[in-house]
Design a protein around this nucleic acid. Sequence first.
DNA 1: TTACCTAGTTCAATCGATTGAATAAATACA
DNA 2: TGTATTTATTCAATCGATTGAACTAGGTAA
Lengths: 340, 340
Amino acid sequence: MASRPTLKTIADQVGVTVSAVSLALRNDLRISQATRERIQQAAKELGYVYNRHAAGLRRGDSGTVAVCLNDLSNPFFTEFLGHMEARFREADRMMLFCHAHETPSIQARFIRQMAEHGAAGLILVPVAGTTREDLDGPQVRHLQDFPLVLISRDVADTGFDRVINDDVLGIRLLFEHLYEAGHRRFAWLGGGGDTSTARDRECSFRQQMDAAGLPVTRDSVHHGPTTLEFGDAMLERLLTMPEPPTAIMCFSDIIAFGVLAACYRHGVRPGVDISVTGFDDMAAAAYSAPALTSVRVRTDLIGQCASELLLSRMAGEQYPPVRKVVPPELVVRASTGPAA
Amino acid sequence: MASRPTLKTIADQVGVTVSAVSLALRNDLRISQATRERIQQAAKELGYVYNRHAAGLRRGDSGTVAVCLNDLSNPFFTEFLGHMEARFREADRMMLFCHAHETPSIQARFIRQMAEHGAAGLILVPVAGTTREDLDGPQVRHLQDFPLVLISRDVADTGFDRVINDDVLGIRLLFEHLYEAGHRRFAWLGGGGDTSTARDRECSFRQQMDAAGLPVTRDSVHHGPTTLEFGDAMLERLLTMPEPPTAIMCFSDIIAFGVLAACYRHGVRPGVDISVTGFDDMAAAAYSAPALTSVRVRTDLIGQCASELLLSRMAGEQYPPVRKVVPPELVVRASTGPAA
DNA sequence: TTACCTAGTTCAATCGATTGAATAAATACA
DNA sequence: TGTATTTATTCAATCGATTGAACTAGGTAA
């Protein structure tokens, strides 16, 4: 296949130099209107495609940003992705995307590669277990002074900007809602991963229990993956207990959906016989059977805030690291009700 | 911030030329082991980051592939994304990502931009209404002989490779399952968009009805968006009909979930009072209340096949356009049962 | 001793676009 | 008419890595 036309091709065609073409295509007024039009016309006819490698090499910016997430099967993260993609498109930035799949080596590789590609900034949901070292150590020297925004999960002791949900508040809202409805026997499901989200939510749960004078026993906290399967399997187990909980608080809506599915099979009526809460308030929460009580994490605000922050850092703005904590909102639906 | 080290920086440090450094970093045997090690050591110490713009400019390949999808809120598409991402990572390709959101202008822009960025190939779920012209016209000359694989949705009369699901078969499997269970009053929900998927599934539904000698009336086909809301709202409407259908076939699991939610509220028992089917068999289908009968679209196979195909085209392999049709599998669950 | 390898390294052109400085041509001003 | 000024375009260096060709020791064979 014939190689693609370049500025040179156009220049020869029109009878000017590459400089003139370069300027004309960017609508620089230094080139006369007439010539500019001839050049632009020729470019169109030749099917010219701008070469950002060449331009980026000279100017030092490729026009891309990098985004690294961990769980595409979780709508919660794809919501983020959507919000950020929209904002970056607006800013005329392309998105280099990585699905790290909770795998440190994939994340590490992506962090290197996006730099090789000249990405101008990085949005990262850090893989579970990510430490300060991973983002700040000698292996990743290039991240120093690099525009990087952490979202959803925090990493302690780093000097990066971060935008996260107020997980402590979220759990408190749910707990208070349940407590006021008379619940006293609670179970906590999920949050197996080594993330700030898992820690903060569980910690908040324990605090609430403490504050309410309720004991946290081995039977009230159950770690596991954020999957439907886990929720489903856990309900089966909880039902066999001598004194099953009356309220089940899940780390994520996903787990809660699994619990609801198991309830349905067992003829246990959520909201009547037992109360179930999720976390995130993904779109499906309003359409589960029954609709799920949850806390709405503002993925829109977090996504927007993170992309704004990144774009401003990319524009070179200097200010101390920002740690933005976005409050979630309690959404009460049919899956919770008064304690039996 | 000090600009990043380049080959020159390393060369000066070690006391060799850039050529030597370039070769050494790629482990070329022409450079002696000793020098190579000194150079690699220096590179590490300096925190050198490879510049793919420069390399790509010279070599003509940036090492990226582009992927353009339309609905991130649909797990069906994110499943694809996951499968392809994995395969491309394996091939050491980065992914330029776009969420076209069923918007032709976004798709068109992305098709231009990914070329500007030197992507070596493109995987595209075409936006609803995409025509031959959009992929083959004078605006997109650069797509000629460009590695491009269409997935999930087909575009007529194009010479591109495509990997799609056998939608006709999928509907037939569902229909036969319902028909054999005694159903005779059917409703079809969804497929509002101008896509091959929507056309093929509805067309197949009509064919099945015809073949079974059942009339397709105004009341049996209802177009709408692929949302939970639509399914929910439609069930409400169907229930008010004098002779409601006994079997509801939905364009997508998403719509079916909406239908199930409405059933739950109304005390209608899916699988007993009414039968409901989805399409795609996303992960959640096994955990809805009740679990949803659907057809499993092999996103794994389609994703793998598409990425293999693309990689082979990118490697320069020549063969006539491939049109791969992957058969789906019927998955019967509790949401369907014998006609009342 | 001379011609000839060979391994190890350097030279210099190259990819395509950008840009500050230089030049040429046209116009304005005195 | 000659000089200053503006306008339109070209020149040439540059970004960072790659690569075929050229060079330079040191070693071998004749």
